[in-house]
Amino acid sequence: MGNNILKEKVRKNVKEKIAVANIREEFNMNNKKSIYWITSVCAVCVIVFGIIVGTNNFNTNINNDLYATENEKSPDALVDLKINKIENMAMKKLNAEMKDFKYEDLIEKFEFINNIEMLPKYNLKTTYTIFTKEDVSAEEYNLLHDYVLCYESDNKSTIKMAFSEIEKPLRDYFINSQNEISKIGDVEFIISQFEETYMITFNINGLYFDIEANGITETQLITLLTSISN
């Protein structure tokens, strides 16, 4: 067989094999495709049904009142706070499993936790991890998705800090906001506010964070975020 003919046969063969590999991957036979049938967190897999929070139905009739606070709340000149205010939110179904995780193990794995300057009067209440299924056919919740630390103050205000090594931590609610970006130093945050609760997402050094802080002031919020991001 002529070498050029053989070469073209090889080329055709390679194309076909690559196409075959691509469709096989599409069928999700080999690669672990993370389809997160997200679930709510309780001792054992719990279902939370959708409810509407607020006075209106969850629809596009959301008043995202965006306002910016630049350098007003903190003496730090590098703070640029833009808070996406929302009036409505909705819960969603989640499918996950919570497992205990010792704080000592957590700080051994993630040193930055030692440096967090938690607000005064807030005490660590609990730590746990959230597992999801790697794919729909999995029988067990085998994918460690989030680490969660919950703090509580004397007056029952709470700060829940979740972080993940793989993607944004799971949320059991929807919010709709404009996603205006705040900055503290070089770190970018998306801060939303619902009534007295701040929801903050950001990424530092490959870790995805999601914080819910209830009952704190903007100044306290900046202090908290600064301590985590430094």
């Binding site: 067989m1 053989l6 046969k9 090889v10 063969n13 390679v14 094999k17 690559i18 590999a21």
Partner: peptide
């Protein structure tokens, strides 16, 4: 055979792609 050569060479290029 040429068929074997074709298969081997194809597999080499598919392997680097993968």
């Amino acid at each position: 055979t040429d068929e074997d050569i074709e298969e081997i060479i194809s597999d080499v290029f598919v392997a680097i792609w993968k």
